[in-house]
């Protein structure tokens, strides 16, 4: 397991476009933005219009919080104080299973894995879990590997 993240050194400040997203994580729900006109989904919710049809009539889609590991990095040198005890930690891009659209559009999100780098490979299935912080209003989603898959790929040093 990577070491703990010290959330006392991180002030997460939701805003107009993201307040509901953070409210959902507090209730252990993983949202992505969704267009009310054409159904397109996207992340992060900081973008207030639909990238496919430019509508600003937008809502949310509650995902199952499951996906496939698309890429990752292993942070060895910490830059943010909150992560000094966490190194080496893996930040992963996860392609969400339930956000694929007919034209091939996908939604990928990012997060810190709870797994060690030795367990990580591109192509593995992942699921979200929720980590409380010292701020009762803020819950941060993390991800863990939840199975195996054929044809995975691992970074060889």
């Amino acid at each position: 397991m990577p070491g703990p993240i010290d959330y006392t050194k991180l002030r997460i400040i939701p805003d107009f476009d993201t307040r509901e997203w953070w409210e959902a994580t507090r209730q252990h729900k993983y949202l992505v933005r969704q267009c009310n006109r054409c159904g397109h989904k996207w992340f992060p919710p900081t973008f207030p219009a639909c990238g496919k049809c430019a509508s600003m009539d937008i809502g949310w889609f509650e995902t199952a919080g499951k996906g496939v590991l698309y890429s990752y990095v292993v942070v060895v040198q910490p830059i943010i104080g909150a992560f000094v005890s966490a190194v080496p930690y893996v930040v992963a891009i996860i392609e969400l299973d339930d956000c694929r659209e007919e034209d091939g559009t996908v939604t990928r999100v990012a997060g810190v894995l709870t797994n060690d780098e030795s367990e990580v490979a591109i192509g593995l299935p992942c699921e979200v879990l929720y980590e409380a912080t010292n701020d009762p209003k803020i819950v941060v989603p993390r991800w863990r590997i939840c199975g195996s898959a054929p044809n995975t790929w691992k970074f060889e040093e």
Binding site: I5, I12, T18, T46, V73, I79, I80, V91, V112, R142
Partner: peptide
């Protein structure tokens, strides 16, 4: 806000 929250900024 998201990238900073998961230690992925530089």
């Amino acid at each position: 806000q998201f990238n900073m929250s998961w230690g992925w900024t530089t």
